[in-house]
């Protein structure tokens, strides 16, 4: 399966192929879940990656949308 991933916060800088508008395309085995994507990208718990699909924050075992877009944010607080 393929997902279109956009990275935000301080994450994008780690991926030279990342385009601010289009993000990056990631291929994963069929049936991959959110945790697989984070692992694939090497985003650890310390970086507090937050995966948003369709305007909702996903759980680690939520399925990913094949050919769909995913935003990866970082946990933030309001100021």
């Amino acid at each position: 399966m393929r997902v279109f991933v956009r990275l935000f916060g301080t994450l994008a800088g780690r991926f030279p192929d990342h385009d601010p508008v289009k993000g990056i395309e990631i291929d994963l085995p069929g049936g991959a879940v959110v945790a697989d994507l984070l692992e694939h990208l090497g985003i650890s718990g310390d970086e507090s990656g937050v995966v948003a699909v369709d305007g909702r924050v996903s759980a680690p075992d939520d399925p990913l949308p094949d050919q769909g877009s995913v935003n990866i944010l970082q946990k933030m607080h309001g100021g």
Partner: peptide, 23 residues
Amino acid sequence: PFTGQMMPALGTAGLVSAVNSLG
């Protein structure tokens, strides 16, 4: 990570992506 890295990198403006991503 929030106070040590994100704040100096983006400031509170980092929330624009987060809150828009959540609609």
